[in-house]
Nucleic acid binder design. Structure first.
Lengths: 134, 134
DNA sequence: CAACGGATGTGAGGAAATATAACATGAAAT
DNA sequence: ATTTCATGTTATATTTCCTCACATCCGTTG
């Protein structure tokens, strides 16, 4: 449900994404420039990548390594887009983004994560936050 | 298994952690100064927080809100440390950190994430990377 | 072959995020 | 009334990231 929200939560700076994907900053920015990814931005205009973004970049990298060019990748990725409830999800996200300010959204997510982590947990070993990224 | 590795992978800058935990940067740094957390550092000396770190901060925050002071929190947290295979886990992590350079470790993790995400996956919806953070 | 466009590297210049350190402050403890 | 704890605030330095421009390599095409 809010899985999509969690997965699209802006978390990582480009430096981390670089090491996670082994792509250069130049490449990442270039792919964004050509619409393959669409990371969020901080107030100060810095890119903030979500899990979805990183997933997508790994997918892109894999295709690049197979010799697929950007146009081809664009095709492949667009085909992977869920055919069902596409507009539904889309509108849901937009709804949230329009009705709530960025700050409010962030706070909401944080609250959700926090509360969920609060109960039914006895050992730190089990973890709190990370449980909600699966 | 490598769960602990994933959970302790340095990912977030302090700004994100602030919004995730609703703690001030001052607080976060203060808690580190007093040994409650121990985030990794980038080459350029910036703090890099893992899921474990964020979990811990949420735990700390919860205790703070209950009126527990730092000494008390230190106690509580130390008690949560797994009594079993403590040294085992510890030594395992240290082993990795000693035998492999930071860069190699990072690359290894990235590889693992990447490869695991590569197979048995047909829809982007399912996600690749995020599956490995649970 | 020469020219062109796609994909990436590199460097300049500037802005944002973070680091440490020092001092300020309110509340709690002594 | 002091002292200590936990946090805020401000100043200054560094690192990371931004955009933009130009260079380079390479495959495709006229």
């Amino acid at each position: 449900m809010n899985d999509e929200i969690r997965r699209s939560m802006p978390l990582f700076p480009i430096g981390i994404v670089k090491s996670l994907t082994d792509l250069s900053a130049r490449q990442i920015r270039y792919y964004e420039e050509h619409g393959l990814i669409n990371p969020a931005r901080s107030e100060g205009n810095r890119r903030q990548f979500s899990f979805n973004d990183v997933d997508r970049l790994l997918e892109i990298k894999s295709l690049i390594e197979k010799g697929v060019n950007l146009a081809g990748i664009k095709q492949v990725l667009s085909m992977k887009e869920v055919p069902e409830n596409r507009e539904v999800e889309q509108s849901k996200v937009e709804e949230i983004h329009n009705e709530l300010s960025e700050k409010e959204l962030r706070r909401m997510l944080q609250q959700e994560l926090f509360n969920a982590g609060r109960h039914g947990k006895s050992s730190l070993r089990q973890g709190e936050l990370s449980r909600f990224f699966h």
